[in-house]
Design a protein around this nucleic acid. Sequence first.
DNA 1: TATGAATGAGGATTCATTCAT
DNA 2: TATGAATGAATCCTCATTCAT
Lengths: 191, 191, 191, 191
Amino acid sequence: MRKKDLNKEECILQSSLTLITTQGLSNLSMSKIAKASHVSPATIYIYFKNKEDLINKLYLKTKEKMSESIFTTVHYQQNLKEQYRQIVTNFIHFNMENENEFLFLEQIQNSPVLDSETLKESDEMFSTLFNLYTVGKQKKILKNSDSRLLSTMTSSPTMEYVKLFHKKQVEGSPEEIKDLIIMCWDAIAKK
Amino acid sequence: MRKKDLNKEECILQSSLTLITTQGLSNLSMSKIAKASHVSPATIYIYFKNKEDLINKLYLKTKEKMSESIFTTVHYQQNLKEQYRQIVTNFIHFNMENENEFLFLEQIQNSPVLDSETLKESDEMFSTLFNLYTVGKQKKILKNSDSRLLSTMTSSPTMEYVKLFHKKQVEGSPEEIKDLIIMCWDAIAKK
Amino acid sequence: MRKKDLNKEECILQSSLTLITTQGLSNLSMSKIAKASHVSPATIYIYFKNKEDLINKLYLKTKEKMSESIFTTVHYQQNLKEQYRQIVTNFIHFNMENENEFLFLEQIQNSPVLDSETLKESDEMFSTLFNLYTVGKQKKILKNSDSRLLSTMTSSPTMEYVKLFHKKQVEGSPEEIKDLIIMCWDAIAKK
Amino acid sequence: MRKKDLNKEECILQSSLTLITTQGLSNLSMSKIAKASHVSPATIYIYFKNKEDLINKLYLKTKEKMSESIFTTVHYQQNLKEQYRQIVTNFIHFNMENENEFLFLEQIQNSPVLDSETLKESDEMFSTLFNLYTVGKQKKILKNSDSRLLSTMTSSPTMEYVKLFHKKQVEGSPEEIKDLIIMCWDAIAKK
DNA sequence: TATGAATGAGGATTCATTCAT
DNA sequence: TATGAATGAATCCTCATTCAT
């Protein structure tokens, strides 16, 4: 008996990602995925319990890829603001360099297809960032708000910025990005 | 001859709104809307060209309702920061008091079903706010960023806050809201 | 109380004819006719019992128009062959000059929507021609076949010729037409 | 894995043929076909791209069946007139013995659902006959007309004859058929 | 007469999923 | 593991026709 072919699973996920970004989440169908992956519809069900499961796994995989890209180059011995700066910079670059992943995440973020388990796992990947907020609040560097609010204060404008970048309505220059990050920091930092 | 029944159109839109917030945009179907509106599927097509048209019109109607609620009580003779405070307060309250509308807008904001014409019309409803940003930048009160970024800097965290409110994870007290708005202002104001 | 507006009936029939020739009989719908005639769907039902009735009446009207065009200029004092020549020439010219009517008749000829009453009425319009065949057989000028066969022997190749003409695969010159008619005559004439 | 069931495809085509001849092409629907074939509507789409494709394939299959029946027993060493006689006799018999196929072809011949590719393929099946016309013209046996006209000169009256036969308005006796074929030959033969 | 609204039934097609191999 | 066939349910939408005015 053969092992599950990881390449095949990978391939299915990759095709799904592309289909979602090109045709929209609501136009995604299992048979389209099958066709795009050069695989039988039935095969997809070997790797994924159902469509919902597939999408949730794709979400997790994408978030994981992003999290790796964001956190691995951070120097945790540096001060908090500098860590923040590095992380957010990485975040912006990841989304600028991976348009497919960016478009996918944008579409899926508020979708009801993401189940709570998935959302929890996803949050855990970004616990580093949440810790940073918690510590920042303890050290009286950051405003004493709910960490989710502090988090949005950064993620939303940066995502918006990247969207403008992909629409070529914004340059994406280091200066611009620096300014953006400063703005975000100001929003969460204690005055 | 019979006249178009405005109640019927209203009813269809209302049912759609409810269905979207309870079952999700991707589970919305014309026959479900028909059933919920106690109307034949064919009747919907008298009032709306197709499903896309219906959703776009629902979006516009909702945005219009919101815009009215937000802008009508603003005192434009007051200074810019105070105007901002009033608008954002109204915005938060509208979304707290109209959970259905809030949930709908959250789901639809990044959806590809919204056509450019609709987005343009929607933007025009909020031109007041954009003018405020423009003026603020001219008066050197606000940071010199793209207005869409300044806008996101406010809308994203407030929407996030309202989400937490509906999940009963924040209080929604006047103090909390005041703090939130201050945080938003700090993010966009020149130091 | 107003009279039925004959122009309106005429207009509905005309629109139907055009719709059938441009979009095909199977794509004809009452609402399309209504739209094309600038009339309410309900209005059509004042003039026609139903869709079938409309089509049958359109068929009769078209056949009548054709029959008038074909038979009025025939000189019945002339000999049988000359009468035949005139009639067939008129038939060909009518179909060359009225492409819409030609295309309509082609589409409808073998359709089951034509009821027997309509077919009978239509046949009666062309009784002149059938008489000609009967007389011809009596006078031993024509072959002693069923008149319907003799009739087809003429109508089919001439219709085919006109089809080629409208497809611009045939000239439509008087000589060509003369040859065609000779061929038809040879097919039915006693040797 | 399962193989495509040729019987199923055959069955779908057969059901379609019957439905068309009994209820008319315009009353044909995919769900009716599904029901008549004891198959899910979705299954039809495994074998045919869509309704149009199904009809076109049914047309080709029917024409093929006819072409086989017409041409296989012809003795091509015999003279042209004799070949013609054999072919036309076969043609008439095929249509007399296969009423369903006959009625189907009559309905579909001038229908716009037949695409040009199908018509081309169909023509190629009958190239034998066209060659015969071409050779006949070269040998000065046949009139020098467009082969499509010569062809119609035979097919139309024979089809009409068969129609009368099925309506029992004509005997179908060998003598009648012989006379009919003579009439057709006279129409195309050089005098 | 004339009409726009209204509709249940049905149109073609695709869906997510399972079956049989 | 892998698959193409198979499917009932669902999709959006249009139909011919009638209603109420």
